[in-house]
Simulated scan of single mutants.
Amino acid sequence: MRGDPITIITTVRDGDAYRDRYFGNLRQILGPHDHAVIVDDGSTAPLATPSDWHNEQRLIILYPGRIGRGAALNLAIENSPTDLIAIQDIDDLSLPDRLGRQVDVLCYDHNQLVFARAMSDPWRPTLAALQHFSPARLYFSNPLHHSSLAMHRSVWARAGGYATDLPCCIDLDFYLRACCVAKARISRLNRRLIERTLDPGTRHFARIPNALYKKTRASVLARYRPDLPWSIWLAAAKLRELQLFSARDVR
Rank of each mutant, 00 (worst) to 15 (best):
L127C: 07
L130Q: 04
A45Q: 15
E56G: 09
L106W: 06
E195A: 12
C168F: 08
E56P: 05
T126W: 10
P135V: 08
V103S: 04
A17F: 09
D41E: 14
W53T: 14
K238A: 15
T126I: 05
S80A: 15
L198W: 01
L127R: 02
S141Q: 05
R69K: 13
G160Q: 12
L62C: 03
A17K: 15
K238P: 05
N55F: 02
R223G: 03
R21M: 11
T216I: 09
R217D: 08
Y224N: 02
D83T: 09
I9T: 04
R207K: 11
I67K: 09
D20Q: 12
P96T: 13
T49L: 15
P143D: 12
L130T: 01
P200N: 07
I208Q: 06
F140S: 12
Y139A: 05
D40R: 09
Q28P: 04
Q28K: 15
M151R: 02
S141R: 01
A178N: 02
D14F: 01
D91C: 13
V220E: 04
I29Q: 07
H152G: 01
L212P: 00
D249W: 09
Y162D: 06
P135N: 07
D34I: 03
P200H: 09
L244R: 14
A136Q: 03
M119G: 12
R203C: 14
T7V: 09
T197D: 15
T10F: 00
A136P: 13
D89P: 03
R248H: 08
D83L: 02
R203T: 13
Y139P: 02
G15W: 07
P96R: 08
L84C: 01
L130Y: 08
D16M: 10
A178L: 13
A76D: 08
S246K: 01
D104M: 13
F205D: 04
I9N: 11
R66E: 07
N142A: 10
L95S: 05
I186P: 10
A17M: 07
T11E: 00
R117G: 05
C107Y: 04
S187C: 13
S51M: 02
D171T: 11
V103G: 03
I90S: 11
W230V: 10
H146Q: 14
S187F: 07
L234I: 03
S148E: 07
G161P: 14
W230C: 08
V155F: 06
I77N: 02
G201A: 02
Y18C: 10
R188V: 13
A76V: 05
V12M: 14
G15K: 11
I90C: 12
D97Y: 10
I170C: 07
P5A: 14
Y162P: 08
L84Q: 06
S120F: 06
Y18G: 05
T82E: 10
R240M: 14
R177L: 00
